[in-house]
Simulated assay, not measured.
Amino acid sequence: MRKVLMSACLLGRKVRYDGGSLSVHDQLVERWISEGRVVSVCPEVEAGMSIPRKPAEIFGGNGNMVLEGETDVVEKGGNVVTDDFIAGAAIALELCKKFNIDIAVLAESSPSCGSSFIYDGGFSGNRTPGMGVTVALLRRHGIQVFSQHEIADANKAIHATSA
């Protein structure tokens, strides 16, 4: 049975920077949980960051640029947390390897988990096309990443002939 990596916040766990969650109420996700398919992760928490914590954004770039050392992940107030985000991404990748996961559903807009959009680094609420650090690392290793708005597509990928 193919497993799927999911952002813990989407599963109702209060792990977001503000101590909240982004619970997804979807029949497909409920079925995945009942089938034992879901492996939960919050890269920031896995890397040792606190709940709550200051908001963080990728400064003028995207997850690939962070992995290449071209830009940083910075908390509001200026503290650089790049190493934590890279460590969290590595933990997520290790979970994928451990459970033979090649599909993930991660929280859109996050500097870790955003797959289509992230915030622009100015703490202004403006989103920009791009992906977070965890998504960039997972995609480099051939893992398909979907957002919580693409659960039906993720389900199709799960039930496609195995990779």
Rank of each mutant, 00 (worst) to 15 (best):
E46H: 03
E46Y: 11
E46S: 10
A47V: 00
G48V: 06
G48M: 03
G48P: 00
M49V: 12
S50V: 12
S50G: 10
I51A: 04
I51G: 07
P52H: 04
P52V: 00
R53W: 12
K54T: 08
P55E: 13
P55S: 10
A56V: 00
I58Y: 07
F59I: 09
F59T: 13
F59M: 14
F59D: 13
G61V: 05
N62S: 08
N62Q: 07
N62G: 01
G63P: 11
G63T: 06
N64G: 06
N64H: 05
N64C: 01
N64A: 01
N64D: 15
V66T: 10
V66Y: 10
V66F: 07
V66S: 04
V66M: 12
L67T: 08
E68M: 14
E68D: 15
E68L: 14
G69N: 06
G69W: 07
G69P: 02
G69M: 05
G69Q: 10
E70R: 11
E70T: 00
T71E: 03
T71Q: 08
T71F: 10
V73M: 08
V73I: 09
V73D: 05
V74D: 06
V74R: 12
E75P: 04
E75N: 02
E75T: 03
K76Y: 14
G77M: 12
G78A: 00
N79S: 14
V80G: 06
V80P: 15
V81T: 02
V81A: 08
V81S: 02
T82Y: 01
T82C: 06
D83Y: 01
D83K: 06
D83Q: 09
D84A: 14
D84G: 07
D84T: 08
D84C: 12
F85A: 09
F85S: 08
I86D: 04
I86W: 02
I86T: 06
A87K: 14
A87N: 09
A87R: 15
A87I: 11
A87P: 09
G88E: 04
A89Y: 01
A89F: 01
A90R: 15
A90M: 12
